[in-house]
Design a protein around this nucleic acid. Structure first.
Lengths: 242, 242
DNA sequence: CGTCATATTGACTTTAGTCAATAGAAGTGG
DNA sequence: CCACTTCTATTGACTAAAGTCAATATGACG
């Protein structure tokens, strides 16, 4: 049942038979959500961490003035709130951006892994570090990229992550975010997102219709965005530098 | 020598005698830097992680167009690039914002801790999670707070962190950042930082002269910033929620 | 004492936000 | 299956926040 974690952590290190067995035997309670539902509430102190099985979800905060900042977007296979294992209560909420299925893994079982498999501790730290690297990239985008480039950049990232998650067909995938949500990802207003998308469309860099994003020429979009994919650590490391 | 880590991780859990001894016996190579020097270069794959002993430092990226985004600011006692233990090469550089002393801990010794002390693995994960929580708060500030509030917010955060690090005297501390650096923290231009500081000064919320920041009334600044300190997890947890 | 870094201010530009009207699409319940 | 509601996207007109450029001051430092 836990293929996603096994597959993902294999990108970091070669898992032993025991380690694979340990990951696969993690128990999970499954639950489904509709678009817009809150999966984990801000301020709660969950005793489980959550793997997204299918659909889409994002982590977000609401400020006192009502504005929202989306902090991360998750594709199937992502451990969405591994950090809640060590840092409670949660400083943000998690919501479903589409009809989604989720698996909940009890924290005590994660603690069990850490006790028995030091290399899996490192894999979990790697997972957290990857999430942090993506957050830094987003932060850079909000702070220093134009709306146009930032949105293009996000689409490049999402295309690659969705590819790894097996969610891309041809050169398109389902984008379960509306323009208000894209705005809250990029620190922009929905109206400005609409205008920026218009430009991207006019230049033929994207086709976005009926919730489906098509990228006719990824290289061109990457060029327009100034995208460098290294931070995603997508490929299996050829060999550990020593 | 490793008091900073012992003290910090005691905020997370009650360390055993052995665990304290293990942290204290971590070897370290010390080195000093001048303001502006690069401590770790972007793209390098260090085999050590770095604890800031004294001074100040920040992590940053430079974009192709020359603009800079500062991703984190560190006070003495911070483990600045714990993530480089699991995620290499580094996606950003680390630079000194003041004359600073740094201790380098070999990654293999960190691996040793993880192998022998599962609870210390969790403490390290907690440290990484805290760093990520601060990054999320900064991201929210860049995306959704006005320049004025964001700068005020940053000063509140820094005041509390500097207090924990024992760097505050009375109600003031040394601010080793110029306006260009403050701008690159907040995603603003130096000129706009200058104007925002002017407003904060005019309202009597801050006194900033000769590299020293005085906060006459922290409550007022917190109010102006809409600051909520929870994400810093500064206090020792009263008791683990169960 | 002179140089370099830093801060301040004014004038002007640009980017993005706000408000509002409209249109279209997608659910929902009878 | 249709009518109704609600959500979502688009566009125009206007506003506001922040950026840029440039001149000048201030200050630290060797």
């Amino acid at each position: 049942m836990y293929d996603p974690l096994v597959e993902k952590y294999s990108r970091y290190l070669a898992l032993s038979r025991d380690e694979i067995a340990a990951l696969e035997s993690l128990p999970a309670r499954y639950r489904d959500y509709r678009r817009g539902e809150v999966i984990v509430a801000e301020g709660s102190a969950p005793r489980e961490s959550i793997v997204l099985i299918s659909g889409g979800a994002y982590r977000f905060r609401i400020l006192p003035d009502g504005s929202r900042q989306i902090l991360a977007f998750h594709v199937p296979g992502d451990f969405m709130d591994l950090h809640s294992f060590v840092l409670r209560p949660l400083d943000h909420a998690i919501g479903a951006s589409a009809k989604s299925r989720v698996a909940r893994v009890p924290h005590e079982r994660i603690a069990g892994l850490i006790g028995r498999f030091p290399r899996l501790s490192c894999a979990l730290m790697w997972d957290m570090a990857l999430d942090a690297a993506t957050t830094r990239e987003w932060m850079t985008g909000i702070g220093r990229r134009s709306a146009y480039r930032h949105i293009a950049h996000f689409f490049c990232e999402l295309y690659l992550r969705m590819t790894m998650a097996g969610q891309v067909e041809g050169n398109s995938f389902e984008l379960t975010l509306n323009q208000a949500e894209l705005g809250d990802i990029c620190g922009l207003s929905a109206v400005h997102v609409s205008r920026s998308l218009k430009t991207l469309r006019a230049e033929g860099l994207i086709v976005l219709e009926k919730g489906r994003l098509t990228i006719p020429d990824l290289e061109e979009l990457i060029e327009a965005a100034g995208f460098e994919p290294d931070y995603l650590h997508l490929v299996t490391r050829p060999a550990r530098r020593r």
